[in-house]
Design a protein around this nucleic acid. Structure first.
Length: 843
RNA sequence: GCGGGUGUGGCGGAAUGGUAGACGCCGGGGACUUAAAAUCCCCUGAGUUAUUACUCGUGUGGGUUCGAGUCCCACCACCCGCACCA
């Protein structure tokens, strides 16, 4: 009873080294135990760990430690998603080599992660910028290349005409280059693509197997893949010109009032050759960025080509052919038929250019002439004003039009995917070099396997914009592997999403001469729980699923889906602070003065603003390191798990972390209160039994909560049991409850748990201990509280023995004085009884 | 613009269609102390009221039901993603 305070500054480091020394968290693939692979999305080494990482890795850590207590052999690895643009930006701004910058960031962040006491297997650590890792990635790329999964074709990029460089979407701000401020243009380049569309069907169907993925993520992926059934039809424009159009609404064909093609459609280009106005319009369309959001929010512009076509089902209608900026060459056929009445985009376009808006779907035949209320109607109904389609349902009309088109030969029913092939070329230095040699005689040729990895040159400069690999004096000059004649290396590097598309396989096994070992993959994969941010719901997760399927197709292993269960956690948020001039202040620069906020420096008034995601730009960040130093890792971990459900945002608060620290100390005092002499004492009656029951219930409930990742509920249970144990009299039941609490918190507050475990004289580590057993007979309550309602409103509650019959409950409820007063002599018409729950009396 | 989500006290949140607000934070009152810190106890959705009790209350407006935070319809606000940020 000498240590009245738990001192994390001493205990944290002690147990972190103890785990390291014992190799507690090194995964043994030869263990006979059931395997659990717990993985959190690995971080980009930006320089500092942020609270989002802390939250993410704390959740995974609790699961990993819990599974270990449950007798599983756990793989819980960590590494670094180390390629990417920030390193190049640092190189330009701070004149430091991207590799050196990245390596020192990794070192700093690893030390921070260690201070959190995460149960990680550091023996499997790697960074994607390790030549060994990206060398294997190059080999996998060549495997895909040789299997016909890779293609080279022309595609648009954001081009900065002043800096003469390709820009990422995030570097385009309001259509202008972030550094030069120049108007960005779309420019076509030859680039490499992975043919993910060949897997579209599989990736869509595979979603059904993912029982433990959130429905919202599966729905987002489903919509992204975007399988649609429709009609591909041809419009004859005369002069031997035909426009192939794809539509998902063939039923509305009688409502068509124009045809529009993409600015880079062959027909648009043909028109532009003879018509300078058309050429100018297309040039206009090339301004601005390439993102879908930019294209779709831009004002809808069209150019009348002068070409005219006719509706194949309604030859009396002449349809103008437009070039339109909202039509995408990449989707469908690059041309659409415009039906303004039943498509909002077409409606706006038709309104702007004075084209007819015709109703062809209505809720009933009587509404055939009903005017539109300022917008298109895309809902269901029956066909009107549509000749032989009249009175058919939308679905029936679709089938009828497709049937007729196929019969007459002017179109056919087809499936179209929204998903596009994955452009993986990046005109940048800090990435995986694409292992291809451009031979003057043989075209693109794979780099021979024995020459892998193709390593990045170290001596590069970032003094001028553009790709340093392209400018390097010697690196790209090599010889053709076939002819031996001089040839040039591919200077594009792989999209960094490629690096994160197979890292989980490398964590599971890392043999010397191969990317991974199929036997080890079979032992560990799929990942049992994958945890990360919702922002990765589509791209990263779809690409990782694709690589896994592609590699399985190549016969590398059997697993088709990499992540059995997915969990997407919310962000860590914080209040924002700003001065009158709108400049942001960090939480460490402000303090509370009564009800107001002021600067610490000179007491100037501060406006406390909205609670938003912690971000450097708004300065509303709290550095985990400072918090760990002040409160210890366990208080921080507890905060990350408390209160907010893990899938929702977690608002950081100083009061909250202080509360967590107080709870750490409260537990420490409670653990001190175990009295081994009382273990044999105490009966099974009254309070003792109630506390013992609470403890048994908590053991079951906390386990269920952790398995469901409902950490906030587990935390609330532990608070409840702690409160009950504190109030209880010393005795066997109390000792049992306290020991249970010690084990229940072990995955969440491992340093405190180890310290208390040792102090209780236990040998070994609680990290290696088992989850406590419970007695099923101790779970059942023998009394229940019944709600008694009159006309749906609560009038009284009754505490009764569990399992009373409906009649008994009804009698008891009617006997209640409060209920009688409420009924006030009115006639009872109906009584609803839910056993062990409630009685509702209706008068 | 399109796709997906979220909305409950001062704050974070809990609640198989069945007692709304568990648990935590903040706040108020008290105990201990020379004093403070720490700790412990009590109160704490709003309103009316005798501490009895009643009314209102889960983003807004409708609906289904004996009973709706939960189900249905319409709307509002905010957040995430949109293919070269990771």
């Amino acid at each position: 009873m000498t240590d009245t305070r738990f001192d994390p500054s001493k205990a944290d480091g002690r147990w972190q080294s103890a785990w390291d020394k014992a190799g507690t968290f090194a995964a043994d693939s030869n263990s006979p135990k059931p395997k659990s692979y717990i993985l959190e999305m690995f971080p980009y080494p930006s320089g500092r760990i942020h609270m989002g990482h802390v939250r993410n890795y704390t959740m995974g850590d609790v699961l990993a430690r819990y599974k270990k207590m449950r007798g599983h052999e756990v793989l819980h690895p960590m590494g670094w998603d180390a390629f990417g643009m920030p390193a190049e930006n640092a190189a330009m701004e701070k004149k430091v080599h991207p590799g050196q910058w990245t390596r020192s960031n990794i070192e700093a962040m690893k030390a921070q992660l260690k201070r959190m006491g995460f149960a990680l297997d550091w023996t499997r650590e790697f960074a994607t910028c390790d030549p060994e890792y990206y060398g294997h990635e190059q080999a996998l790329f060549l495997d895909m290349y040789e299997a016909g999964m890779v293609e080279r074709r022309s595609s648009e990029v954001n081009w900065d005409p002043v800096d003469m460089t390709v820009l990422a979407n995030e570097q385009v701000i309001d259509g202008k280059g972030w550094r030069s401020g120049a108007e960005v243009e779309k420019r076509k380049l030859d680039q490499w693509f992975l043919k993910i569309t060949d897997f579209a069907d599989e990736l869509l169907d595979g979603l059904d197997e993912l029982k433990d993925w959130p429905d919202k993520v599966k729905l987002m992926q489903e919509n992204w893949i975007g399988k649609s059934q429709g009609l591909q039809l041809r419009f004859d424009c005369g002069y031997g010109t035909e426009i192939e159009v794809y539509t998902t609404r063939p039923d509305t064909i009688f409502g068509a009032s124009f045809v529009a093609v993409a600015p880079d459609h062959p027909v648009a280009e043909m028109v532009a050759q003879k018509n300078t106005e058309a050429a100018d319009f297309i040039k206009q369309c090339k301004l601005g960025g390439t993102t879908a959001a930019a294209l779709e929010t831009a004002e809808k512009l069209g150019f009348d080509t002068g070409l005219r076509t006719e509706n194949p089902l309604d030859v009396n209608t002449e349809l103008p052919v437009y070039i339109a900026n909202f039509v995408l060459m990449d989707y469908g056929t690059g041309a659409v038929m415009g039906v303004p009445g039943h498509d909002q985009r077409d409606f706006e376009f038709a309104t702007k250019y004075g084209l007819p808006i015709k109703r062809v779907v209505a809720s009933s035949a009587d509404d055939a002439t009903k005017p539109f209320d300022g917008e298109a109607e895309s809902g269901d109904g029956i066909l009107v004003n549509s000749g032989f389609l009249n009175n058919l349902s939308v679905e029936g009309a679709k089938a009828e039009v497709i049937k007729r088109a196929e019969m007459r030969g002017w179109g056919e029913g087809t499936t179209v995917w929204r998903l596009r092939d994955w452009g993986i070329s990046r005109q940048r230095y800090w990435g995986t070099p694409i292992p291809i040699i451009h031979s003057p005689d043989h075209g693109p040729v794979p780099v021979p396997r024995d020459q892998l990895p193709v390593e990045l040159p170290e001596d590069i400069d970032f003094d001028t914009p553009g790709n340093p690999l392209e400018r390097h004096p010697t690196w790209k000059h090599t010889v053709c592997p076939i002819s031996g004649k001089p040839a040039l290396r591919e200077t594009d590097t792989l999209d960094t999403f490629a690096n994160s598309s197979w890292y989980f396989l490398r964590f599971a096994s890392q043999p010397d001469g191969a990317p991974f070992d199929p036997a080890e993959i079979a032992k560990w994969m799929p990942v049992e729980h994958y945890i990360g941010g919702i922002e990765h719901a589509i791209l990263h997760l779809l690409y990782a699923r694709f690589w896994t399927r592609a590699l399985a197709d190549l016969g590398k292993f059997e697993v088709k889906e990499p992540f059995a269960a997915l969990f997407t956690q919310g962000m860590v948020t914080h209040e924002t602070y700003s001065l009158g001039d709108g400049s942001w202040l960090s939480p460490s620069e402000v303090k509370k003065d009564g009800a107001d906020w002021v600067t610490i420096a000179d007491g100037a008034p501060v406006t406390a603003g909205r609670v938003t995601k912690m971000s450097k730009s708004k300065k509303n960040v709290v550095d985990p390191d400072n918090i760990i130093a002040q409160y210890g890792a366990d208080a921080v971990r507890w905060f990350m798990l408390s209160d907010s459900p893990p899938e929702r945002d977690l608002p950081w608060s100083d009061a909250g972390i202080e509360g967590c620290y107080r709870f750490v100390q409260r537990l420490w005092r409670l653990f001190d209160a175990i009295d081994p002499a009382a273990d044999g004492a105490g009966g099974a009656g009254g309070e003792d039994k109630a506390l013992a029951r609470k403890a048994h219930q908590a053991i079951v409930a906390v386990a269920e909560d952790i398995e469901a990742l409902s950490f906030n509920k587990a935390v609330a249970r532990i608070y409840e049991l702690t409160g009950a144990a504190e109030k209880a009299k010393p005795g066997a039941a109390r000792n049992f409850a306290i020991r249970a609490i010690l084990h229940l918190i072990a995955p969440m507050m491992p340093h405190l748990a180890e310290e208390a475990y040792a102090k209780l004289g236990k040998s070994g580590l609680i990290a290696d201990a088992a989850w406590p057993d419970h007695n099923p007979g101790m779970l059942v309550e023998d009394e229940v509280t019944i709600a008694v309602q009159h006309k749906g409103k609560l009038r009284d509650t009754l505490t009764v023995a569990k399992g009373l019959s409906k009649d008994e409950l009804e009698a008891l409820a009617l006997a209640s004085e409060k209920v009688q007063r409420s009924i006030d002599g009115a006639q009872v018409r109906k009584v609803i009884v839910v056993p062990d729950r409630l009685v509702n009396i209706v008068t």
